[in-house]
Design a binder for these strands. Structure first.
Length: 482
RNA sequence: GGUCCCAUCGUCUAGUGGCCUAGGACAUCACCCUCUCAAGGUGGAGGCACGGGUUCAAAUCCCGUUGGGACUGCCA
């Protein structure tokens, strides 16, 4: 007895949606846990919207998430012949009929209050194939079709409310309902795990599947379904590509770790046992149950994602953090360049060695890797980028601040031990002499050196920055306050 | 409009008839720690949509109401 077979079948019509990522993840988790097979099928049968470069986007996103398929990736467009075979068999067995109604005609015939959808006008007209005839499925007029859903239980649909939907375009192209079902059937898919927006077409696919069974020699069991709750925005609407930030690539570029992203995604509609929410992939795999998936829509909360990512970042070893943040401080990425003019002190530019030293100072201060450059840039710029309001407050408009700067220059010039504790003690003393606490005394120095009132630990920073640069920046601050 | 789905703190959720005075996490507030900012620690505020049943007992089961959402294409 082999395990279940599930599939994830995105269409290459744009960036990779976080909802798709969640669907792919839940399929993958289920397959891993049940020792099943995870199939990746690219559904590229929409000539008008599909683009080849988007196929690459899907592969990259899946790779980043670590969700590698056990079978595939396959292309639905490669299954064209199989779709034709299925459509012909269905037609031969009377499940399909030709229809030449235009949308306008269908609309015109519709009586007020009539059920929506096609009215079955061509059902018994006995039309044959032509350039303007599509093939419709002859849905049963009586009875109900029940969708066995692992998450929602049995969902019943009255057959007479399901209209005769189009299965093959007049151009000959096979539509989603049939293409998808035929592929699932050929792939021997046992569980269809997908978004809730597909629940309404599940009965159609079951009807098709039954019809395909009836018109071929092999009887393939109808799959079980699991319709995952929608991912919604703060307006409680389905996440929209147009107005919501839903591209996984966006999050990747902002500096989210895929492990954190996966962990967060797993918590959307499902939760691990116990109170711990930061859980390793192995735990996710071990505990995941489709039956436990929530029924109600989940809000994609970037704040919580950020927090989760921060947890993962802090859990990294210094070496891992350094490696993870390297792409974000790459000069190519930051555009950190030495300026054209010659400053009076040593010219700065990005130094991987220096960054390796200071990276630990920022590791627990960032929630996403994209915040790293701004936090360390003062180490690599010729001149810090000043927060002018802060500068005015603690230096220009504060005589004591200027006195601190003066005192720091005088003492740092003659210090023979350039280490953080010593640098700290000097400012502590300076503060004592002026009757202010260290937290006050360090402010003008911090601002002069880093340009800001917030940042990594000051005295460690001075240590790594070196005496020459420190003194030059202190003098520059004094000069520009005059 | 029709069909279907859903309903626990602002958010994600735990809860499967008594263990619930409803637990955790994010966010938020206060305090502590502290060279800033974070991180960390402690504590606070905050929820079972409403109305009927069933039951000795209901957040949990049933019905209804209200509210939200999805679908309703010769897209996927």
């Amino acid at each position: 007895m082999s395990g279940p077979r599930v599939r994830f079948c995105p269409s290459p019509t744009g960036f990779f949606h976080v909802g798709s990522a969640r669907t792919a993840l839940f399929n993958w988790l289920f397959a891993r846990q049940q020792d099943g097979v995870f199939i990746l099928r690219i559904e590229d049968t929409d000539e008008t919207r599909d683009r080849e470069e988007y196929v690459e986007v899907i592969y990259e996103a899946m790779a980043w998430l670590g969700l590698s398929p056990d079978e595939g990736p396959t292309r639905q467009s490669d299954n064209f012949a199989a779709h034709q075979v299925a459509a012909n068999a269905l037609l031969e067995h009377g499940f399909l009929y030709y229809c030449d109604c235009t949308p306008a005609e269908i609309e015109a015939r519709k009586a007020p209050g009539a059920p929506p959808g096609y009215d079955g006008f061509c059902r018994d007209r006995g039309l044959s194939r032509s350039a303007t005839t599509a093939l419709r499925f002859r849905t049963p007029r009586e009875g109900v079709t029940v969708v066995h859903d692992l998450i929602r239980g049995d969902v019943e649909f009255a057959n007479n409310l399901i209209d005769d939907f189009v299965v093959v375009r007049s151009s000959g192209g096979v539509l989603y309902a049939l293409a998808n079902s035929a592929d699932d059937r050929n792939d021997r898919v046992t569980h269809v795990v997908r978004g809730e927006e597909h629940l309404a077409n599940a009965p159609k696919q079951i009807m098709l599947w039954e019809a395909m069974n009836a018109s071929s020699d092999d009887e393939v069991p109808i799959p079980l379904f699991a319709h995952l709750p929608l991912l919604v925005n703060e307006q409680r609407k389905k996440l929209s590509k147009r107005r919501d930030p839903v591209s996984t690539e966006l999050y990747r570029n902002e500096g989210y770790l895929s492990s954190a992203f996966v962990n967060y995604l797993a918590l959307l509609g499902w939760s691990p046992r116990g109170d711990e929410e930061i859980v390793p992939l192995s735990t996710l795999i071990a505990q995941f149950r489709l039956e436990d998936v929530s029924h109600s829509p989940a809000f994609f909360d970037v704040k919580k994602l950020r927090h989760t990512n921060g947890e993962y970042l802090r859990a990294l070893s210094p070496g891992e953090f350094l490696a993870a943040s390297a792409p974000w401080v790459d000069p190519w990425h930051t555009n950190w360049q030495p300026s054209d003019r010659e400053p009076s002190w040593q010219k700065h530019q990005f130094s991987p060695e220096l960054f390796a030293e200071v990276a630990p100072l920022v590791q627990e201060r960032v929630a996403v890797l994209g915040e790293v450059p701004a936090m360390v840039e003062f180490f690599f710029l010729d001149e810090p980028r000043y927060d002018e309001a802060a500068f005015a407050k603690v230096i220009t408009n504060d005589p004591v601040g200027q006195a601190i700067l003066d005192g720091a220059i005088a003492r740092y010039e003659v210090l023979d031990d350039w280490h953080a504790p010593v640098l700290h003690d000097v400012v502590q003393q300076l503060g004592d002499e002026h009757g202010i606490a260290l937290r006050k005394a360090q402010a003008p120095i911090r601002c002069a050196i880093t340009g800001s009132l917030i940042g990594p630990p000051l005295f460690e920073s001075l240590h790594y920055l070196g005496r020459a640069t420190t003194l030059a920046r202190l003098r520059l601050a004094l000069a520009r306050s005059a």
